[in-house]
Structure formats: C-alpha cells, structure tokens
C-alpha cells in the first residue's frame, strides 16, 4: 500500500511541476500556456543529450536545461502571445498549443520516435521508505515538487515581484500607470516558467524517459490538476496533483486499471459542479487564490 502511495505521489509530482509552471504564466499574464508540458519534453531530450553525449554532471545539466527552457519560454511569449495582447478571445490558447505541436515536431525530427533513457540517478536503485519501495528518482521528484510549490507560493505572495505580477494580472492598465513594465513582466513569467520545467526535466526524465509525445499526456493531466486546485493557486496545484496521482494509482491497484482515469475525471466533474473555481479556491468570485 505504501509502495502504491509513493508511486502516486511521484506521478503527482510530475503533474504538479507542470501545473505550477502553468500558474506562473497565468498569474503574470492571464494566459494559459499549453506549450508548458512540451517545453518540459524538450528539456528531457536536452538532459539526455547532456548526460549521454556530453557526459555532463547532473547539476550542469539542470542549468543547461533551465537556460534552454527559459529561452524557449521567452521566444514563445514574443512570437505567440505578445502579438495577441489585449485582442481578447483567448487566441493565445491556440497559439500556445501551436507552439507545443511545433516543439513535438522538432523533437521528432531531431531525436526520432524511440524513447531515450535518462542515466542520472540510476545507480542509486530502489529504497525502502516507510514500508514502501520507491526509487531515488521518484523520491527526488516528490521533494522537488514540494519545494518548488511552496517556493513559488512564497514568491508570488511574499515578494514585490510576485505582488507586482498579481497586480498586473488583476488590472494591467493600472499597473502600467504605476510604472510596471508589463511586457517585461510577461516575458519574465514565460521565461521563469520555461526555466522551471527545463530545470526539473532531468529529474522527470528519470521516470518518464525522453519521448517526443510526452507533452501531450502531461498537458492534459496538468490542466486537470489546475482545474481541481484552482487557477492561479500554487498550493492548490500541489495538493491537487498529489490527489490526482494517488487516486490514479489506488484506483488502478484496488479497482483495476480500467478505473484509473475514470475516477480522476469523475472527481474533476464533481469538483467543477460543486466548486467551479477548484478545490482550494476561497471564494466564488475569486479565481486566483495565491
């Protein structure tokens, strides 16, 4: 049972990291960036290259992937989001999805359709923790997701840059009048979110491998986590991701694999009917609960 719990938490950690990156962009720009999971996917391939081709240590690979993720995020904001600013209709949903599809295509051309293994942390094998079996990679993912989730919550609620992002999100025009560089803030949010998923890509790849279609499934699951946790809520995303991961694994373990996705989507349906703004939203009118 504890092994199942660890498995659920580790899968939930992957969902959480993507959902938190979604939130960074959402808080800063009110844009839902569908490409986020695809940037993570590109990061996994870069991490594999860093490990297997250039033999870089894990720490260096994390920095390289973070820089690459930040660049992709910033470029995405510049070409797929900025031209649509203030035009309404949420056209960014289409353009960010388009960026995701393009990233998948590029990954397919560059690295092919076969999955690629991530050598980092393999030597540490499996641990017995609290009566359950878990790999070092999985345990690291859980710890990193918690640290990142809490860290981003603090950043967005306790720092001036976080409060500035919140203010811009609430009223862009007022923020501009107060001298906030809203364009710079938007680019920064995309770059930060890209850097985050890039930095965790080496760790994620120890569980998922690098495969060009990784982004598709993660984009959907992380969106589901976001809807459950409440759009804009860092802690909500963290907790909802844990719930989704655990629910998936326990449903597969005790009800059968046919129920794995059914239970999660039933939960989503119930939550959206009863609490349309997510499990961890504080008020009906409030859609952002940092």
């Amino acid at each position: 049972m504890v092994t199942t719990l660890w498995a659920g938490l580790s899968i939930g950690a992957v969902y959480a990291l993507v959902a938190i990156a979604y939130n960074i962009v959402f808080i800063g720009t009110r844009v839902f960036n569908f490409a986020q999971a695809y940037i993570l996917m590109v990061g996994t391939f870069i991490a594999v290259e860093a490990a297997s081709r250039f033999d870089l240590p894990l720490g260096v690979a994390i920095v390289v992937c973070a820089v690459a993720g930040a660049l992709i995020g910033a470029v995405e904001e510049f070409i797929a989001v900025r031209p649509l600013a203030r035009k309404g209709s949420h056209n960014e949903l289409v353009t960010t999805l388009g960026i995701g599809v393009i990233l998948s295509g590029i990954a397919l051309v560059l690295w092919g359709s076969e999955p690629r293994a991530m050598p980092y942390l393999k030597e540490f094998g499996v641990l017995d923790v609290l009566g359950g079996r878990v790999t070092v990679g999985e345990l690291s993912l859980i710890v990193v997701a918690i640290v990142v989730g809490v860290g981003m919550w603090l950043l967005s609620t306790r720092t001036s840059i976080g409060l500035t992002a919140l203010a811009t999100s609430e009223d862009r025009d007022a923020a501009m009048l107060r001298g906030v560089n809203v364009r710079g803030l938007a680019t920064g949010a995309f770059a930060l979110a890209g850097a985050l998923v890039g930095a965790v890509a080496p760790l994620v790849a120890t569980k998922t491998y690098a495969t060009y279609h990784l982004g598709e499934g993660l984009a959907v699951k992380a969106f589901l986590v976001l809807a459950l946790g409440g759009f804009g809520s860092m802690l909500g995303s963290l907790l909802a991701a844990g719930i989704v991961g655990i629910l998936e694994m326990f449903a597969a373990r005790y009800l059968g694999s046919d129920w794995q996705n059914i239970t999660v989507f039933v939960l989503l349906l119930i939550v959206l009917v009863v609490l349309p703004h997510g499990l961890f939203s504080r008020g009906k009118a409030q859609e952002r609960v940092v």
Binding site: A7, S10, V14, E248, S257
Partner: peptide
Amino acid sequence: YAPTDLDMTAQLQR
C-alpha cells in the same frame, strides 16, 4: 495499461 500511463506499479502489484 493505457498508452499514456507513466507508471505500471499499481497494475503489477495487482
């Protein structure tokens, strides 16, 4: 398992 599954621990435990 579904083609999108990332972990088979639960199925194997079963």
